[in-house]
Design a protein around this nucleic acid. Sequence first.
DNA 1: TATTGTTATACTCTATAACTATA
DNA 2: TATAGTTATAGAGTATAACAATA
Lengths: 160, 160
Amino acid sequence: MTPAKPRTRKPVPPPTTAPEPLDSHVLESLVGYNARRAYLVVYVAFAERMAVYGLKPTDFSVLSLLAHNPGATSRQLCAALDIQPPNFVSLVAAMDRRGLIERRPHPHDGRAVGLHLTPAGHQLMVEAEEAVIQLEKEASHKLTDRERETLIRLLQKIYL
Amino acid sequence: MTPAKPRTRKPVPPPTTAPEPLDSHVLESLVGYNARRAYLVVYVAFAERMAVYGLKPTDFSVLSLLAHNPGATSRQLCAALDIQPPNFVSLVAAMDRRGLIERRPHPHDGRAVGLHLTPAGHQLMVEAEEAVIQLEKEASHKLTDRERETLIRLLQKIYL
DNA sequence: TATTGTTATACTCTATAACTATA
DNA sequence: TATAGTTATAGAGTATAACAATA
């Protein structure tokens, strides 16, 4: 067990005087507005906690997919994550340079490249997935386990 | 009633062959991932439908807050919407040029400026709010009214 | 002819430092 | 000394057109 693990909370917020808050009841009745605000909270927590691993949300998503879909191609990953192929190139290149993934020739298609986690990539993802699960738990600590499941189920009814 | 209102649905998707889908069960267990994917769906629907009004989500949020908080200052709006003040300047300038809002001297603070909707701004927002409510209903049509309320309540437990 | 991966590029969004005028 | 609004600017994130290699 890690003794006295370092707090990664924000330092004390600057002692500014808050302005009078506004009535935002209309915005708060919209799914889009609320989904974005909630996402932003998790995103900030992710950025703070995952900086140690040098992973942004998109990097994490790609590596997580590769962990469970070894040999996936750029095309498949782009489709799964809604990323435009041109924007995917530098992403893959950076993780290749870091030694987290490997490109191997595709068995059936000479145009495609199969992507695989390296042992270092696997090891990083074991720690990173654990950290993300923990960070998500903290970011959604006001929800019971049941509520959290419900939330996810309802969100998926919108985008799946 | 408008006869035969023009469909704003996407044209028929190009007949490309989809790649083998990937197993994304880990990502789909994360609040952050699901909130982002769901937000993106609503965002695209918003962009398609609201282009007629020349309003992006942020513009709409600002105008909606001004409709219910006349005389609010830039500082208040930035705080409410989590926008950095420098990024707010061009936003206000554009809506001022369009004649949607007006800047009046603040009654108590010579540094501040009170923002108000013009009659044209009010009229636009009456139509725009109606359009957003309709578009949200369609984007979340797989949810019952009760589920939609639950979803919003749970999202707010994360960010409020 | 269509698809995979790529280059170049542009546009939007977001963040920070520093200035001004008022308080 | 601190705050409201602003300028300039830099960095992400995201989008499209067009190309080479392969199918």
